[in-house]
């Protein structure tokens, strides 16, 4: 996928992700995260859930929002494939995400992303786009 690339990180999984604006960067980060977890093409948008997050700045906001999404993976066995950002500023995000419960017959799980780290997060402008690195603990 062209909106993100895998980075070399010795211990964990790292990605570099791009978006034309903050909203696109958030959506692309979430899409990339689920692309690492499962073959995204196999996930059907059968239920939708409202997911909000708050933070003190946009780097932390992205981390907190991705962590909220992961909560549904860890506790509710739910994975997502569509992300609709309803409202977004530097400190708040309101989103409606769509996906379904994990079905081991249809979903081949690839990585267990256990946490999103702060380590390399730094949303910045590059070539008229926004970009950041994200390191996931697996």
């Amino acid at each position: 996928m062209s909106f993100y690339q895998l980075l070399e990180h010795t211990a964990d999984l790292g990605i570099r992700v791009w978006g034309r604006d903050l909203k696109a960067l958030f959506i692309n980060s979430a899409s990339a995260m689920y692309d690492l977890i499962v073959d995204a093409k196999t996930v059907r948008p059968v239920k939708h859930i409202k997911i909000n997050a708050k933070a003190q700045d946009r780097d932390e906001l992205l981390k907190n929002w991705l962590s909220e999404l992961l909560y549904y993976f860890h506790v509710k066995d739910t994975i997502f494939c569509r992300f609709d950002i309803v409202r977004l500023d530097e400190k708040n995000v309101v989103s409606i995400v769509m996906g379904e419960k994990i079905d081991k017959d249809r979903h081949s799980l690839q990585h267990e992303i256990k946490a999103v780290t702060f380590h390399a997060l730094n949303i910045h402008k590059t070539d008229n786009r926004l970009s950041t690195d994200i390191i996931f603990d697996i």
Binding site: L6, L7, E8, H9, T10, L13
Partner: peptide, 8 residues
């Protein structure tokens, strides 16, 4: 201790 990334 790892010396190669998972990607590599």
């Amino acid at each position: 201790g790892r010396c190669l990334s998972r990607k590599a």
